[in-house]
Write a protein that binds this DNA or RNA. Sequence first.
DNA 1: CTTGAAGCGATTTTT
DNA 2: TCGCTTCAAG
Length: 762
Amino acid sequence: MAADILANLNEPQREAVKKTEGPVLVLAGAGSGKTRTIVHRIAYLIHEKNIFPNRIVAVTFTNKAAGEMRQRVLEVAGDAAMSCILKTYHSLGLYLLRELCGYISFPRDFTIWDDTDQNGAINGVLESLSRDKLNKTHIKYFSQKIGSFKDNLISPEQLPEKINLDEIEFGDILQEVYHLYEQKKMDSRAMDFSDLLYQTVKIMENFPESLANFHRRYHYFLVDEYQDTNHSQYTMINLLAKGRNNLCVVGDDDQAIYTWRGANINNILDFNRDFPDAMTVKLEENYRSTQPVLDLANDVINQNKNRMDKALWTQIRDGQKPALYILNSDIDESKQIAAQIENAISSGVAPSEIAVLYRVNSQSRLIEEALLQKKIKYRVYGGVSFFGRKEVKDILAYLRFLVNPFDEAALLRLVNNPPRGIGEKSVERLVEFRNEVMQKERTLSDFLRIFSLIEDSGLNKKAADGISQLFTWMKDMREKIMRKVDFALLIEDVLERSGLKAAIEEEDRLLGTSRMENITELKNSMIFFQRTHPDAVLNDYLQEISLFSNTNDLGEPDDGVCLMTVHNAKGLEFDTVIIAGLDDGIFPHYLAAERDDGEEERRLLYVAITRARRQLFFTRAKRRMMQGFVQTTNPSVFISQINETLWEKNDYSLNQPGFVGYSGSRNNYGEKKAPGSYLQKQNEIIKNKTKNSFNNVIDLNNVNSAQKAGEFRSGDRVRHPNFGVGKIFKIEGSGDAAKVHIFFGDNKSRKFILKYTRLEKA
DNA sequence: CTTGAAGCGATTTTT
DNA sequence: TCGCTTCAAG
């Protein structure tokens, strides 16, 4: 067995596999067999070193990568590998956290809040501070900040010492909002996404015996995509692995594409500092792509200054030259893509070996249409996910509430959905009443009495009736689900009694939607789950799917063309890859310019290119629908930066001088300037960049860099000729084009273009 | 107070 | 296109 395991590896790969004890850093270029190395290392540990599979923990970044790895581990190591712990960071966090809950007397069957739930809760907090009706931007602002604090393991109490609050927007209330949000979440018996790492780390730190326990249990750790770990992920893995120091991390600094989410590339650059006795292995031979594909990839990535030196090479010398197709419109572009796919398929490429990669999810729509027209099977990954659909979330809110009646987010979602006469005011009162009860009734059974106390709540008759009716059957049903229950019957029952069924059917009939089909799909997914997990209770299902909130994947086979964002494609490979939308503003994306020095978008392109084994195509559209308008686009800067000899350019826009496709009411061709040119933004930013030093402060995605526009900066109090005195909340862009968001006394924020606004300091 | 209709505006990347 | 906010009517 051992011979087999080592046989198909090259020298550095074999080294990385055989050095099972102590820390190992594998710097692996794209396509250099990094997953292969991890998989074989696991097999080697099991079969050669006789390690119990359940002592081995392997961590990946995405669900898709985890699934793929599990499959390959089973292929190489056999069924013995079944009991390996093979998870994403978040599912590992959840797995450990359920156990750790005992240390803080928190129920282990907590609810997991997604971003929407989190935003709702933060909104509630802001209202309770009577800063009511802050708009969406503000809620997003607070939730981003809180998320980034947690990603950096900063508790509400630590906030003032770690962050200079004077320099941040709303610094005066940030700590309070953070604290109240945490309170509300705990009261709801819920954890948010960040908690799956944050709480796990905090509890392991505060209760060393819990960590020692894990150290006894888990002996070998493998981490994929190490370049994309953020501080909390990094800390979690390091705490766990410090027990025996058997940590093998694999990554590629050229593929770091998550710094926007707090990933810290220094985690991989400083591995040798954290683990001084680490062995470093470099994998530089690429087994995936042909020379022409690799040449183009190298040409792109070599333009980045800030990178470790690497030289990828391949033995697959021959290959097709990559090609760029320039089209007149995004509609033509999608047709061209469909045609390329048709070609590839007829030349023998399997549809599942073809991928269309794009920068933003919204690009998928037209491509889908073109593929539908040609009757090409496809599958979209990510985007508006199945579990993100309104009707699915609606019904899930009921299920969540049945499991955990403390869950405020679920309550708010379901209470007047479908409409039952409980409007905004009644909800407000209900929540107040609920919080009062919660002060007194700490246990669940006491708390459930809220259902029968509604009459005393001061609600109007209609609302009180609605609520007591609702709660009567829910209380009933809750008793049912405490016992073992058939998921299919349960969801049927909830649909019926909630009135959701009637409401959804009515909507389908009137608007021609097919929401009911999605409900049926949800039901199928629950049935499938119960069949595969016979002992599972409802909350096991709910927790599981909350980590899959970004999938459309409900277990169907992967047999169509893959459509996904470049981010989603990381770690995957395909025979034929088409990269769509090489237009300025799309790729690189105009909103990335504010944060990115230009290199992350380029790394993103590099990741996209290196997904391809044999065929690589790019497309660009001279006009495309953006933000509701058809707009003229400039070529992506990447096009001019790529050496001409490395690809073929086919300008099909010249053959068809007319603008095909757009007709009817939307006719302002080219009238509107493209919303964002990446280049333009970059230049402005470079010009206006103020020098900040971050010596003693953690850089939380630049929380501390107060933005300036002319003489104004965010945080300033200003007087507007029409609206009076307000505070600058946010500044977008700079120079004359800068847009200033000002927050006025009437609790509304308004946006102005600085150039056209007569502002003075107040 | 609640609801439904009409108008509006805004759209990165993900666990 | 779609989801959200705003507005007027019941």
